[in-house]
Design a protein around this nucleic acid. Structure first.
Lengths: 398, 398
DNA sequence: GTTATTTACTCAAGTAACTTGATTTAAGTA
DNA sequence: TACTTAAATCAAGTTACTTGAGTAAATAAC
């Protein structure tokens, strides 16, 4: 979402230093506990360099030295893990009707969350409310502001598109034309990342979910609509204008259900939170919240079962497209849908066997369930900050 | 295709140096002619550093000092351009029936190309033939081997998939289980990159085609089948197993034409070189080569016009999916299809207006025609080598 | 139980590449 | 002609990594 064009930047000693710190943190994150010699071998650095780096990271409270590794020959290695208490990040999801906030510690555990109804999310209302929320979250989670790595603000996309408001009801059109990141960095007095819900949720999965060691995967996010986040080689894909992953409006049925975007047969008219609500309402079933939906599943409600079948058929098409295009290690489904319903959906999928994804050496299932629940996007916002601080922006030097 | 897992690597002075050389080359490539102060500002380096780097690059023959910039106040800047004669790269496309070779100079100009029929492209036959071809290409293009940056070998994917041969007739199943890159590096005695045709063609577009200054775009490649290459932020997407972009087998018509992959209604049964050939044959029209196809278009042959209409309808679906998923600056169509036919296809596309891609601030057309012709993939192979040597592998430091 | 081997780690010196600040050069402008 | 602006150079300084010698602490072998 950051509109600033990323430019290739030259390196110098200082930037190299911070890059190497992230390389080390990223390695420890995925391989903890890890000894210094091991880190050095894997990261292509000298032991001495790693020694200096870990010393600083330990002083900064980001790494924790744990008991030495025994059972192997040679001097026992001092092993390091990420220090959960070393730092924290805040995520805020801004929705037209609510403000959701989550606080994660450095290992990605959610240590605080809250949801408040919010009637009119225009900038003038929302910005001060978010500032308050963030301050309350810091206080309620018993953290020091000095340890705050930053805030991730999650907003429904797409941004900067002509006729934007035609593209789905979940948008916040009043936020157009504002440098949102700059405004929040000034207001919140900390680094800020702005992102859409699906990408944020994907990053959450990478930081603390089913994909901590998966470098390349797709995340299909059930929000009001349907979004896609992709992590490729550990890096989130953003597209040229920050609107990567608008998967909800790919057409899976020519001449199908009328979508708010103007086209017919869009995927999200069949598979999304909004879709299941509408489908049930048409049979006179009201759906106040997630637990009601889970109950309908327990009851094997025939209308819901019908919806699952239809949704799974359309989702299968989309997932097959994703497998063919992205060649991912796995595809993860998550978001604002009860776990049981998500599991039922996944079980009902019908994926073609004659596919790229049907590899012999596959170690992960083709489709997994990820983090679900209504805090997913806010958690993702915080996860983006953790991710940024533990992920080198270069893939390799080669 | 390179199976070696890319790993985040720490930086040191030496790696920083080579990174910075690529940063500078990449900047000059896209902004030539460029002065040193200008480079320094854009790349986040000191003028002194850039001065040292350009000095070395000029000695190595990669940069060329051109006349000073006048008309502005201050001391005139010594400007640099890429030196076309400073180095060269070779690309080889391996097909079941032919070996195609192209040589590019450093600015991406094709300075030599050849095509030879080849009946049985199994490794034991093809490897020595490719070695010969490469040597001949160096000789015939009057280059010194010491200036060879490397060779890009282009092969039709997908690789390493169960039941691979079921996925289309263009594959080379005998190459499974071989470390192709290592074999070629040993045989050809130079750096080697292995890639599929679509990605190679996309990189060609970035190095020397319609996308030299476009950082994020999709390239739809018409080969025997249909492939997709994506450049995101200047980096080619490869997927977890090197099989990114198998767009030919996404299904655009449920219950449609039977595809060799076992499914029905795959995109490439409607839009590909093979598809047009089959379609015309069914009406008794034989298609020996590309110029015959171009002639049919000139004649406004009704069968071909029908095919174009159908193909464009299916392509429109796919392009709409790509726009929604990747949010690219533009989508480029290229490959083994006559320019005129490609232009007719593009003119016939029917893209939804209510789309992410329909931005007000759009500067590039939503769909462009790229490099076409039967040497496209081989040129792409060589372009990959140029690209690698002029593209920093890190996007940015912060 | 002693010695050998293996591996991790530390210390101190060395090095490569970038940065900084003062200075020079060469154009446009008043 | 003198002033302003901007690029480029020179020389010294800085930073973070590497190198090589040496130490420490475990397992393995005799």
């Amino acid at each position: 979402m950051t509109d600033k064009k990323l430019k290739a930047t030259g390196g110098n000693a200082g930037r190299n230093r911070s890059h190497n710190r992230r390389v080390v943190l990223n390695f420890v994150r995925a391989h903890e506990p890890a000894g210094r010699a091991e880190i050095a071998r894997s990261c292509g650095l000298s032991i001495q360099a790693v020694s200096n780096i870990t010393e600083v990271l330990e002083e900064d409270g980001l790494l924790l030295a744990v008991g030495p590794k025994t059972g192997v020959r040679g001097k026992p290695a001092t092993q390091y893990t990420i220090n959960p208490e070393g730092a924290f990040a805040i995520g805020v999801e801004v929705r037209p009707d609510a403000l959701i906030c989550a606080v994660l510690n450095l290992t990605g555990e959610c240590i605080y969350s809250e949801r408040q109804a919010f009637s009119n999310a225009v900038p003038d209302n929302a910005i001060p409310a978010i500032k308050e929320t963030v301050n309350r979250a810091i206080k309620n989670s018993n953290r020091k502001r000095s340890q705050l790595l930053g805030a991730g603000i999650v907003m429904p996309g797409p941004f900067g598109v002509s006729g934007l408001s035609a593209l789905g009801g979940a948008n916040l059109p009043e936020w157009g034309g504002i440098d949102i990141q700059a405004v929040f960095e000034q207001t919140l007095e900390c680094p800020v990342i702005i992102e859409n819900d699906a990408t944020a949720a994907a990053i959450a999965e990478r930081v603390t979910g089913a994909a901590t060691t998966v470098d390349t995967f797709c995340f299909v996010y059930f929000g009001t609509g349907l979004g896609l986040g992709v992590i490729a080689d550990g890096h989130a894909q953003r597209g040229a204008f920050g609107n990567f992953g608008e998967i909800g409006h790919i057409i899976t049925q020519t001449g199908g259900i009328q979508c708010a975007c103007g086209n017919r047969g869009c995927l999200e008219t069949y598979a999304s939170r909004m879709s299941v609500k509408t489908y049930l309402e048409q049979s006179g079933i009201d759906l106040p919240d997630g637990s009601a939906l889970a109950q309908l599943l327990t009851d094997e409600n025939p209308v819901l079962m019908e919806w699952i079948e239809t949704a799974a058929r359309h989702l299968s098409q989309a997932i097959s497209i994703l497998e063919n295009i992205f060649d991912p290690e796995t595809i993860i489904l998550g978001g604002a849908m009860p776990d049981a319903v998500m599991d039922a959906l996944i079980a009902t999928l019908d994926l073609p066997m004659g596919s790229l994804a049907n590899r012999e050496d596959r170690t992960l299932a083709r489709v997994l369930r990820g983090t679900s629940g209504r805090f997913t996007a806010a958690i993702g916002g915080a996860a983006m900050i953790i991710h940024k601080n533990t992920t080198p922006s270069l893939a390799l030097f080669s």
